[in-house]
């Protein structure tokens, strides 16, 4: 088991002929993901890396069963691409593209909710069910199967922590990137609920950061969880009022502070680690107790 995607997931790449789309299609294939089709308007009928390319998502689904798509198109076209996949009935849409206007993000998320589909991102590294399927851009070699569920806002910080786990031979069930933008589809709570149900997941690592309310919201649900949760919150040393890269990572008017998040999570029974590389040791201790 794993959550959201697994070895049976048929993957569509939207924007397969672009630089990023092409590079990461190769990477996903080499990880073992079942990338079975791509879209690139005007290039329908060709193949890329042996994969059939179509002009539109509707054209793809006339021929293939698609379980998930990944969007690599530029920001100005990303809303159209995401809505196109959702309208065609794709149930999981992973939007890697960054710098999508927030009004477009609200429109995508609203439509996804109406058609009862999952949107991961925008501005996400994607999702990996280790050893089974990777959709998105993380480097392949750091993801090995195991009992740890990981959910995060930040990509590279996730690689850092997953890389540390893998170096200690601790594998992951599924690793989910929610995306660094202010408005994203899946939330911590959505993912935590799935980990709580998943047989393979024994412990959960939550990787948060300053700004926004996502961690505070998560802490409410964590109180009901039976599985242990470990969290690292980035930005303890960040000065107030300065925006630190992610649109999400800004502290304003005392909300979304490191202290506030740590307090909410601690009260929910979460074990907080102060630095990213402390995660494996704490996870090891927890796994030994189970």
């Amino acid at each position: 088991m794993a959550i959201i995607i697994d070895e049976t997931t048929n993957v569509l790449v939207q924007g397969i002929s672009g630089k990023q789309g092409l590079f990461h299609t190769k990477q996903m294939l080499s990880y073992g993901s079942k990338v079975i089709a791509g879209t690139s308007p005007g290039k329908g009928g060709t193949t890329i890396e042996g994969i059939p390319v179509y002009d539109s998502v509707r054209a793809v689904i006339e021929k293939h069963r698609i379980d998930a798509s990944v969007v690599f198109v530029p920001a100005s076209m990303a809303k159209d691409a995401a809505l196109e996949a959702l309208e065609a009935g794709v149930k999981v849409v992973v939007i890697v593209t960054e710098h999508i206007p927030v009004h477009d993000e609200m429109a995508i998320v609203a439509y996804a909710k109406r058609v009862n589909s999952i949107v991961i991102g925008p501005n996400t590294f994607g999702i990996v069910s280790s050893g089974k399927c990777k959709i998105g851009i993380p480097p392949n070699q750091f993801f090995i199967p195991g009992p740890v569920g990981v959910v995060a806002r930040s990509g590279t910080l996730t690689y850092e922590i997953v890389g540390n786990l893998t170096a200690q031979n601790i594998g992951q069930s599924t690793v989910v990137g929610m995306g660094g933008d202010r408005v994203v589809g899946l939330t911590f709570v959505d993912v935590l609920k799935k980990f709580e149900q998943d047989m393979e997941t024994k412990v959960v690592v939550l990787i948060g950061e300053i700004g926004g309310f996502a961690e505070e919201e998560a802490s409410q649900y964590i109180k009901e969880m039976t599985k242990p949760v470990v969290a690292y919150i980035a930005g303890k040393s960040a000065p107030q009022g300065k925006q630190m890269g992610h649109a999400g990572a800004i502290i304003e008017r005392g909300k979304g502070t490191y202290e506030g998040k740590v307090k909410a999570l601690t009260e929910a029974g979460v074990k907080i680690v102060e630095l990213p590389f402390e995660v494996p040791r704490i996870i090891k201790e927890l796994l030994l107790k189970l």
Binding site: A152, R153, S154, G155, T156, L157, T158, Y159, E160, G180, I207, E209, I210, Y232, A234, G235, K236, S237, A238, M244, G245, H246, A249, E274, L275, P276
Partner: peptide, 21 residues
């Protein structure tokens, strides 16, 4: 660093070890 999260994590770690970014 590359990525907002890991950059913040880097600042946190520098601060933890007594350095100043």
């Amino acid at each position: 660093a590359n990525g907002a999260g890991i950059t913040m994590g880097t600042l946190d770690t520098i601060t933890y070890y007594g350095g100043k970014p």
